[in-house]
Nucleic acid binder design. Sequence first.
DNA 1: TTGTAAGCGTTATCAC
DNA 2: GTGATAACGCTTACAA
Lengths: 332, 332
Amino acid sequence: MANIRDVAVAANVSPATVSRVINGGPVNAKTRERVQQIIHKLDFKPNASARSLGLRKAGMIGVIVPSMVYAFYSQIVEGIARSLAESRYEMALRISYHKSGAEEMIMRLLGEKRADALIIITPRDFQNQLEGVFPNDLPAVFIDGFPHRHISAVSGDNFDGGYQAGRHLIALGHRDLGVILGPRSSPESEQRLDGFRFALNQANIELNEVYIRYADYMTEGGQKAAIDLLDLPKPPSAIFCVNDLMAYGLYLAAESRGINIPAKLSVVGYDDSPMSQWVRPTLTSVRQPTYAMGEKAVSYILDLIQGRTKKESNEFLLPVELINRSSTAAIV
Amino acid sequence: MANIRDVAVAANVSPATVSRVINGGPVNAKTRERVQQIIHKLDFKPNASARSLGLRKAGMIGVIVPSMVYAFYSQIVEGIARSLAESRYEMALRISYHKSGAEEMIMRLLGEKRADALIIITPRDFQNQLEGVFPNDLPAVFIDGFPHRHISAVSGDNFDGGYQAGRHLIALGHRDLGVILGPRSSPESEQRLDGFRFALNQANIELNEVYIRYADYMTEGGQKAAIDLLDLPKPPSAIFCVNDLMAYGLYLAAESRGINIPAKLSVVGYDDSPMSQWVRPTLTSVRQPTYAMGEKAVSYILDLIQGRTKKESNEFLLPVELINRSSTAAIV
DNA sequence: TTGTAAGCGTTATCAC
DNA sequence: GTGATAACGCTTACAA
């Protein structure tokens, strides 16, 4: 495998000149031409490790994702991968759920200087734990988290998502509205609730506190919460679940209670997971711009790395969209 | 950030000794102890680029995956990530569908010496194109492909998967069996068909060639092929789809023709995608050991790298399992 | 515009 | 068991 010196010798120039050719430095047009030919002929590819060592840059972006098996996450990762493919950066992927702490893997990635920057997807519960572990000057961004001291976040517009869900159900005539939330510690869940509540308030409807349930974003948790709501003396006529998995749980609950969706009960989910077009009835859900979120995170982080933008704690809110399917209907 | 020399100075030893401590070389117990304390105190982490350069090893495994949005793929990747997390290797992930050719990205990864080894998931159609591009001595493995000259492959047992599907339907009394396959070029599709056919032959049933359709692994393709079959003068009473997406297409086709599943038509899918427990009726499907496939690929590739095993063109067949749900029923 | 030479932070080969 | 010393392959002042 040819190295930079081989090229230099063959082209009758110094290694420095070859380096300049590679990196777009100032080189005489003719020399550049000649060197490039040699590079091509020898099929020379600069060694990444040596390059990193010289530049004191890894040329890699660390990506931490809780899991790959949820479409929401894997779509984000795919968005990241796509945009990164057009840069000179490689993506080092780490999955955090199955490891004790994400901190450790993050610190190793950084300590060993394997990654120049970090994209961290939803460290939800433990985002706080991350506090203090980041070097202040590390380019980093959260996806689907909240901005954090000196770290920005890109998210779907949770408030608006909740708002759209609320508007939709109100427009269908629903007045007794239930909500199945994530854990109490979950900020995006709260934001969706806030938006939902705002829609109701605008229509002079009060959200009955009796109709609010906290769950865990999982199907079973949603099912339990749903049974709880459906067994109420006067159950709500529509329920907003802050993610789709819990809505599927609600489907099971409704099935077990013989309640027809959407005739007797309207349901709105969140995330528009691919399954939502396959469940029956198909699920009305708020779609997040997953790919765009990944892409935005990459462009922001590249700006940060290249000093085109300053490190601040911004929040980039991307628009969400309610996908209207068959789990919601006008009240009879 | 402390480097190896800082540690050496602080511990009153040479950098070489520190290096030995890090890498488990021969060092006096007392010295080792002292050095380790300093390492800890200074929070020294060896620089990955320098290490790579010295070792002439990248410390990274390249993973090429067609897409992340199909659970089948993302589960494999998650399996890979899990096992890799326990090694000293990092995973460099590349998605191939959206790029012109996977070859180019593979060659760059290798040329720049960013990756010591490659795990390539289903280069299906273009696995042939890859021929010749691999250096002979490169540790590499295919997942869900077929062994290739000097490269091994780990796959689910496609023949047995088809066989199980066939046995299942025959046991339910079906005799007029249809099949919706992948593209003609798809080897795993053929293997599943072979297994299916073998099951029929064992039962002295002939697979009617009229009931065989080729599609593209996508929902719409499956739907078209299904309509084709269902509109036959005497349609089959059961259909085996070689992946779940096409089975969902079949569901749509059956719906549009007013054919009840499973009362009038039994359906078996393949892959057991998570959606299959949510579609109605829930889909009987052959589950592939996705996580295990990823894990096996990693352990094999680590063996290869560490010279514990020789490079050969093996095929590692992992067991598959038919998950019996509600889309199949005894013939009336 | 180009070349020289000194890093970058490790590991590996020798001696001792 | 330990320490010099020379790689590893690139980048980048500083000179010319």
